[in-house]
């Protein structure tokens, strides 16, 4: 069914489409430039030139590896919530809070009505798409996660803040579609933290995507399956991206009880491990999905963003993934 939707959108993909969750490691050159920029040793324009160079590097890398649906690699983003909070109206940069050990970050605060400031990701998307003939995904962080990872000084409660964000993020989705994006991923890594709030997280995503012509993917991080399946099937998207590399979940048993009704992106690479999976391991992980769903409905990707791996580790892991998928395409055909 979703294959037909992709076809209507003009996107043709092979069996077991391959993609990534969004972030790639900053290239060493860019990492150095970001540190210099923070110390005010280079200008914004100089930094941006290197962000573009790094983005182009990753587009070429994805093409060489043979991925089917590409990403811009988020070379210009720091934190996936702060990036949007810094651009949107209604937010202030908050004080420092600790995340673990000696790591601190500025947690954004909603201090007024949240407001879409005009396109936040569209120029990057447009430029990245101009570099390749492969489809590039539009990427944004979902309303529930932006709400959960910010303080709320303004709205009555978490639900009101979340729904207000959803209405504003819809404008970003509309702008991406107008620019030509056909596949849009809306990340909700926080979605499983409070099960009792899932109903309004779903309501919010409806506000963001309903009636808009694109193929929507939502990435939820490790643990989501155990806590919010099957209720998460009510998320109004075409494809759910779930980490399985690290889990011993028996998908067959779960889906027998509550059939999976969407396309499934199987996160088969462990992004927290330095070691590179073998194609055989990856094939086994993909087969866990293909045994329970028609292969036409299965996508293959890493289990989260690759930004914590090195450039070489990321390339190695993705190359192994493509080797596995090519073999499976032949075997399943």
């Amino acid at each position: 069914m979703s294959r037909q939707k992709l076809k209507r959108l003009g996107v043709e993909l092979p069996l077991l489409p391959t993609s990534t969750v969004g972030s790639f490691p900053k290239t060493p050159e860019l990492a150095e430039a970001r540190a210099k920029y923070a110390r005010k040793q280079i200008t914004r324009a100089e930094l941006e030139a290197l962000e573009k160079k790094a983005t182009e590097f990753w587009i070429r890398a994805q093409e060489e590896i043979g991925l089917d649906v590409l990403v811009d690699g988020e070379q210009y983003r720091g934190d996936m919530v702060a990036y949007f909070a810094e651009l949107m109206g209604g937010f202030q940069t908050g004080g420092l809070v600790r995340s673990y050990g000696n790591r601190y970050y500025h947690k954004p605060v909603v201090v007024g009505e949240v407001k879409w400031p005009g396109p936040m990701t569209v120029e990057w998307w447009r430029w990245t798409q101009s570099l390749t003939r492969k489809p590039v995904k539009g990427m944004l962080t979902g309303p529930y996660t932006v709400m959960d990872w910010s303080f709320n000084d303004y709205y009555r409660d978490r639900r009101s803040a979340c729904l207000a964000l959803a209405r504003q993020l819809r404008k970003e989705v509309e702008a991406l579609i107008e620019a030509g994006a056909k596949i849009i991923q809306i990340d909700e890594p926080a979605i499983s933290v409070r099960q009792e709030e899932l109903p309004f997280a779903i309501e919010a995503l409806h506000l963001t995507v309903d009636g808009l012509p694109a193929y929507f993917i939502t990435h939820a991080c490790y643990g989501a399956f155990e806590t919010i399946y099957p209720d998460m099937l009510d998320l109004p998207v075409d494809n759910l991206d779930l980490a399985i590399s690290n889990s011993a979940l028996d998908l067959l048993k779960i889906f027998e009880k509550d059939p999976f009704t969407k396309d499934l992106s199987l996160g088969v690479l462990d992004v927290h491990s330095h070691s590179i999976e073998t194609p055989a391991e990856i094939k086994a992980r993909v087969m866990r999905g293909v045994r329970v769903l028609p292969p036409e409905r299965v996508w293959v990707d890493p289990d989260c963003g690759l930004k914590t791996r090195t450039v070489e580790e990321s390339r190695g892991k993705l190359a192994a993934m493509l080797t596995a998928v090519r073999e499976l395409r032949t075997e399943l055909a």
């Binding site: 600790r98 995340s99 673990y100 947690k107 959960d148 990872w149 933290v193 409070r194």
Partner: peptide, 14 residues
């Protein structure tokens, strides 16, 4: 061992 999320917070524990 490694880091895990502390309940529904954005804080991690070992």
């Amino acid at each position: 061992d490694g880091l895990l999320r502390l309940f529904d917070t954005n804080v991690y524990f070992r």
